[in-house]
Design a protein around this nucleic acid. Sequence first.
DNA 1: GGGTATAGTTACACTTTGTGTAATTATTTA
DNA 2: TAAATAATTACACAAAGTGTAACTATACCC
Lengths: 207, 207
Amino acid sequence: MEQRNAPVEGRMERKKKETRQKICKAAMDLFQSQGFNDTTMEQIAEEADVARKTLYNHFPVKEAIVDEHVRGLSRGFAEESLKTLQELPDTKSRLLVILDRLYEWVEISPELTGICLGYRLKNAYQGEGYKSGGSQSLISEIIRLGQEAGEIRQDIQAELLVKQLDILRGSVVMDWLNDPSKLELRKEMAKLVDLFLNGAKSRNEGN
Amino acid sequence: MEQRNAPVEGRMERKKKETRQKICKAAMDLFQSQGFNDTTMEQIAEEADVARKTLYNHFPVKEAIVDEHVRGLSRGFAEESLKTLQELPDTKSRLLVILDRLYEWVEISPELTGICLGYRLKNAYQGEGYKSGGSQSLISEIIRLGQEAGEIRQDIQAELLVKQLDILRGSVVMDWLNDPSKLELRKEMAKLVDLFLNGAKSRNEGN
DNA sequence: GGGTATAGTTACACTTTGTGTAATTATTTA
DNA sequence: TAAATAATTACACAAAGTGTAACTATACCC
């Protein structure tokens, strides 16, 4: 049973993807060793062994490379976490676990997280619209599970709830980036979840 | 009774402010007539009759000029609106009125709003920390009034509530910028306020 | 008042970003 | 094999943003 989802997927597209990945890899290596700001597009092109213009064909600005990289990681993170969700009893615990994992993840590379989020938000406010990463799908799932169980209000579109939560998530990350010393971050997250839930939780049940 | 708040406020500081304002004025005029992207720092310097370098002494990037300008307007807006707040009966109506006015305001110059918010958020996510404009003070006041009246929970710091609301406000603006055709924006705002309040409203009272 | 420190402005040179154009190369299709 | 297509590349250019050092006006001190 031969799979032929992509009609042809010719050599050309394959090579293009290859180039893209080569660029991404080279760039991330350089960012790692020299930092984002001290790495020039010229250097990246050099390292990836392509023309500088080719680089711009794939990524309009330097930040876009980080964005792509993070998107890849987020996908993995989301898939991995989706399984965990079902095992948890209620919305509150699901939210806390996801936010907590997110927090660990940000901790690993704060610089890149800042750059990536800054880039996305800049676009969000300038015509492009906000393209969230994998966390959006996680949050959607949490809301879906919650609504299914009657734990979350249904008179507000799931979409709106998701957006609200996604923003909440962003604010948590922002806080952390602004002041990493804040070790009570988890407490604060719990408060934010509480704040969100006591609007989202439907009143007529005693959970 | 001679006022002497600022110790000296010498000629130098005065001139500096003057230059700053001259730049700001020139830039905003050009943005108005040619658009933000099609206006170069060179042109602004020319129009303001200062060296390009001087311009950079005052504003690190073009966006910062817009930010300054908007800050000025926001201050006025906030002062004006503060009076209105007391006349309104409860938190819900206060929030709706403020968001509604904000919406009108954004409508006037969407481009500049997008640029300004994008700039602030980019900084927020990269070490600078988020410096909100005048709306923050409005929101603080709304929360304060609400807590004073026992209408808003007090087990969560006002600061957190304010931040959450400020972000909510941002998301409303973002929505509008992404799709100005959405005329049901007011409905959506009402839903967001509802969502926020039913977490912020203290349970033990029947208002 | 005159001299010196201070701070803003300026000229100049430079790196980097990002874009537009057109030539070149590799691939697909007929 | 030939034409059409799409990616890569070289080149040139406008503009952003930075560093250095000279210049100028203000402020300060004796």
